[in-house]
Design a protein around this nucleic acid. Structure first.
Lengths: 210, 210
DNA sequence: TTAAGATTTTTCCAACTGGTAAAAATTTGT
DNA sequence: ACAAATTTTTACCAGTTGGAAAAATCTTAA
């Protein structure tokens, strides 16, 4: 018998294992080819199983993609959520940058999956962007504006400040090939994340202090 | 008779016209779906002609893609090339940011085409990245290092400085959907490029001045 | 005007696509 | 051990894909 929606029904050991393997493979494939550019066969091969067997666990290609995006979005919002209104403002922003940079380093495929989805018009997560993400950004923008009005950091547009942090940090995951092409043969390529952190901290500390 | 490689042979009026129309349509389709996610039929339909007719001008799907990338790379390097060693350093960097931001605004599809290509591992332009792009970045990094050693701007890693400018400016083209989702219902959404310019200039002016 | 060349349409195809159905094999609870 | 449930394999399909071949139509220079 076919398993039902993974969430409501209790799942067997094999089911849990294979779903993990499949999602891991799907992440690999989707993140490098985008949704439409990926085939179920590719994912099945990466997962070491036949296509019909894979489709026994995820009945549609879209189901895998959606499962990945759902899982991703929670982790994606976490670093910003941690930004603390009671912390030292500049330090809070630096900590946020470091967390984001660490995520780009540790989860580059997730970053690319997200980038692919957005690039292609966010057809599968537009409503989360307009909902959860927007609300979180609104909240943290208020927080930043409060820091500004209390004279803790320089006046600036909080949303664009957040955009610039997203851009600079995710860039190291999404554009990794380009960065490696440019830094190749430089001895500092292995330290690109430390160098990036240093550069960005300097930029934001000096750019935001009163 | 089939036309040969467009560059060497003289081309008719119709040929020139249709190649333009096709490349315009291909840009539209490739930039939103990526290479593998786009179909020749989609492009043909967008160009208002039949698939075999389109294939008369570009014998392979890849040829259109390559033609677009080739054309793109020249324009892509231009803004950085204009960075002038004899100019006022901070002002030169600000001008570079403004040019890049303007390109993101005027040519978002080109930016997305490029982003898609890089995201997917740059299979079609890796050698240009390691050649022309790398050389240009090397040259301009030297220039920036010179500014630093002459005490004109704060010490920083020139390559990562350039990366951060690429990231922040291209972000407004590549992640436009996300930005619009977040800024929606804000009255300032129409001014997002002006707001971005202001934010970024502040960041880089204060972040780089001695 | 007319023939050579350029362009477009029609017809086709083999490979690949996402997905189904059912049989076969395996695992599991008792 | 054994029946029930789960998992895997085999065989299949209709639609789409990139692309080739050739016939039909249109342009253009002499």
């Amino acid at each position: 018998m076919k398993p039902r929606a993974a969430s409501t029904q209790r799942r067997t050991r094999i089911q849990k294992e294979n779903e993990q393997i499949i999602l891991e493979s799907a992440l690999e494939v989707f993140s490098t080819n985008g949704f439409r550019g990926s085939t179920v066969d590719q994912i099945a091969k990466a997962a070491g199983m036949s296509k019909p067997n894979l489709l026994y666990y995820f009945r549609r290609k879209e189901d895998m993609h959606q499962a990945l995006l759902d899982r991703l979005l929670t982790n994606w919002l976490a670093p910003l959520e941690e930004m603390d209104a009671d912390g030292e403002p500049i330090e809070e922003i630096c900590k946020y940058i470091r967390r984001k940079l660490q995520m780009a380093q540790e989860y580059p495929r997730e970053s690319r999956l997200f980038a692919n989805e957005i690039l292609q018009g966010a057809p599968h997560i537009k409503q989360q962007l307009e909902g959860a993400l927007r609300n979180l950004v609104d909240e943290k923008s208020g927080l930043i504006e409060n820091w500004i009005s209390r004279g803790k950091i320089a006046k600036c547009n909080p949303r664009h400040l957040i955009f610039s942090i997203w851009a600079t940090t995710q860039h190291y995951a999404d554009f990794d090939v380009q960065i490696c092409a440019i830094l190749a043969e430089e001895e500092r390529i292995e330290m690109r994340f430390e160098d990036a952190a240093k550069m960005l901290e300097q930029l934001y500390v000096d750019g935001l202090k009163i």
